[in-house]
Amino acid sequence: MKKLISIAAAALGLVAGAASAQTYPQRPITMIVPFAAGGPTDVIARIVGDHMSRTLGQQVVIENVAGAGGTTGITRAAGAAPDGYTIMMGHMGTHGAAPALYPNLKYDPANSFDTIGMAAGTPIVIVAKKDYPAGDLKAFLAHLKANDTKTNMAHAGVGSVSHSTGVLFTSVVGIKPTMVAYRGTGPALNDLMSGQVDFMTDQIVNVAPQITGGTIRAYAIATPQRSPALPDVPTTKEAGLEGYEVSAWNAVFGPKGLPADVRAKLVDALNKALSDENTRKRLLDLGGVIPEGAERGPEALQKLVESEVARWTPVLKAAGAVAN
């Protein structure tokens, strides 16, 4: 046995001697996506991560750590070593709405991270069942107000994007519809198509197929510009609703304390990915909005996070939506 140990030790020693100084990145980078694979955030992370791998010369591996509205994965990533080998795709929920929804949150969206930059946003669309008796957004809002408690608003569960944006919608419009919760967007859309529920708000990538397929109708898209994915859908401002511009943004963060050169390399890789024609096309096909110029980069993201936390906290707290 002694002989064995000495052989093994010798083998390891040989290998150890060859180790030398390294430059970042030396091994695959893990990007934690705090949602299940296949969802909008995951898809965006994979598209962007695919191109970042090429710039960095190392694979960006997507690791899905889902749970508790994304806060499980972000909590994990926030606690990782700030060596640039663990980064994360945060989003509107985890870095905007979460402090209001989860009083026991173990991270501070504005201070526990080093921002890398915005990746892509997916605009919110106001959709209703296809035979909803209103021709345009104005008529829809009037009808909602007249039938306040009779209408059913669907959402994909407390803490989801459709829930937060739906709550914002009801507070902007000033209505109190009956809220019906679903586990995810799929089942909610199913009941919207069959007319069991009346309306909901959700990300364009989730609802665009049904809108173009004619099984549900869209009243407005909550962005300053129309989306090429749904050119016929007016913006909220065009259709006469002020104060409801919202998109589910997705952005890359690292744990607090990234070395400056590592952070710069990641910012550069993300920037190159967002300028690449093929990547842009894939993001636009999803209905995504790509940040341009001043919207890119770590400083812009830091400001966005601070303003988003300030925006969501009063709205969600007023609605009494606490996910504990």
């Binding site: 390891l12 290998v15 150890a16 060859a18 180790a19 030398s20 100084a21 390294q22 030396q26 091994r27 695959p28």
Partner: peptide, 10 residues
């Protein structure tokens, strides 16, 4: 992992 030569892939 660092014991291996730095040129080795993961």
């Amino acid at each position: 992992a660092d014991l291996y030569p730095s040129g080795w892939s993961s």
